[in-house]
Design a protein around this nucleic acid. Structure first.
Lengths: 135, 135
DNA sequence: CATTAATGATACTATTTTAGTATCATTAAT
DNA sequence: ATTAATGATACTAAAATAGTATCATTAATG
């Protein structure tokens, strides 16, 4: 079962690269070309995912010549769950299990409660995996 | 993000139903028709999933008139992870994240270690959710 | 022993999601 | 004005999911 999609995967790599190169004191604004050249990822795909991060206020974007992307949030404030949520939606284990007749009382269902709890601790753990922690 | 597929979902419901009706002292062999009539699920779909469980030695199957399916493993020995594994594969969070240049040393990668650990505890928790615990 | 009622196996179709491409518009530096 | 970047959006291809159809096999039973 696949848990991480390409968007999430590629984007995490791009973020780690951006964070590490801005840490080195190099310029903060990085173009998509630089990222995909370094990481060997498909350019147009990467463009779209980074644009989405910009809309979500995780990156700043600069149009025009000498433009590109830079981190808006700090590397320690960007976690794996944030990225998963953006590209794959909330991590919700209770999705669609035992609806219907077996478990008519959704609110009271003990299974849902357990799954919810498990999902919460999963979220919590994944939240600790920040870009900064991967440098 | 969807975690549970239809196969897993429907199958868990069927198992709970089978376990509860055999507990009541009713006959142990149940036909697909009885299950889908009770749960309102698509019959041919259900047939395929139950056949698969039979191949995986979770159910016994009986061909011919008066045939059907019965639990081979006991309800307390069938867990949600078992079913997920059969229909959706192993629950492996490390799948495809940060391969390639960012993380060339797969064995040593600290992220993979962390994800592996998180995945293990997730498995452990889901393993506690047995059919018996849902009756 | 023919009939009937069940599963076994497998191939097929439709829908949705994921992965990736193409293109034109907009913007800013020089 | 030119150039080099992102913004937005529409499109295509591949894979996974959901569900159907069908014929073969088997066992009970009148």
């Amino acid at each position: 079962m696949k848990f991480i999609s390409r968007d999430t995967d590629y984007t995490m790599r791009a973020l780690v690269f951006m964070a590490s190169s801005s840490k080195k004191g190099a310029k903060h604004v990085i173009t998509v070309d630089e990222i995909v050249d370094e990481l060997g990822l498909p350019k147009i795909f990467m463009r779209r995912t980074l644009q989405k991060l910009a809309r979500h206020k995780i990156l700043s974007s600069y149009k025009g010549k000498e433009g590109g992307f830079s981190l808006l949030k700090s590397a320690s404030q960007i976690s794996l769950v944030d990225i998963i949520k953006i590209f794959q939606g909330n991590i919700d284990l209770t999705n669609c299990l035992l609806r219907g007749k077996v478990c008519p009382e959704v609110k009271k269902c003990p299974l849902r409660k357990r799954l919810k709890k498990i999902g919460q601790s999963l979220n919590k753990e994944l939240n600790k995996i920040t870009v900064a922690s991967l440098l």
